[in-house]
Design a protein around this nucleic acid. Structure first.
Lengths: 112, 112
DNA sequence: TACATTGTTCGACTAATTTCGAAATACAAC
DNA sequence: GTTGTATTTCGAAATTAGTCGAACAATGTA
């Protein structure tokens, strides 16, 4: 496979995006791409098996969240930030929002 | 159970919201609440079993998306629109975005 | 050509989620 | 209290999603 298919942004549904970003690993991938820009697959796979990561990249790609370009042997992923933002204003900020510690602390307080 | 617990909006994480809205039935519930305002459970359960719907309302509630108030024998659900919107600007528009026909047509065109 | 690198696909397994009937709970009205 | 309505909880079955090793494909380099 020399090149990936990516859905046009107009074909991307809110549900596809919600579903793609509902997995912690995929949300983390999107977050890193939003923060640090394009990265290849291995840079993003914290010691996780390649087949697992490959699956997650596919879900993100099919949902229209990530674009993958093939350059030599590596596959460069990037967040489709501008397109996503024009289709769903505010989504990139939601992806970046990751105050896990705060929300865990609050959640703990709430649980009491 | 006389009253439900709802997480404070500050404890709501993007992932919880993504995950709650990743299910088509729950997204549809949120959408109707966004469009038509508060509704009770049965108004929202298109002939689906009550136990199924009850599960979905719980997920939406726990994720901070929906608020449920008990009034007599009925439970009135509403979208926590203002709170959600202040926490995640743009989220309500994303919930409302439901151009299913357009996106399906585009998806079909894309699949060719 | 052979080899190393990067990533995908396949298939099997496991884990999580969804579904739904039956029983239970909550409340209002009689 | 008994009845009726609205909804939850429980438990089990069905479905869907995630994980991961092994085999495969594509590219670059010696």
């Amino acid at each position: 496979m020399v090149r990936y298919e990516h859905p046009p942004i107009s074909a991307v549904s809110a549900r596809d995006v919600f579903q793609a970003l509902s997995d912690p690993i995929r949300l983390e991938i999107a977050r890193r791409l939003a923060r640090r820009g394009a990265q290849n697959c291995s840079e993003l796979s914290d010691a996780r098996p390649r087949s697992t990561m490959s699956h997650h990249f596919k879900v993100l790609r099919d949902a229209g969240v990530v674009r993958t370009l093939v350059q030599g042997t590596e596959h460069i992923n990037s967040l489709r930030s501008e397109e996503l933002e024009s289709r769903f204003p505010g989504i990139v900020a939601m992806i970046l929002d990751d105050d896990d510690e705060r929300s865990e602390a609050d959640a703990a307080a709430f649980a009491r």
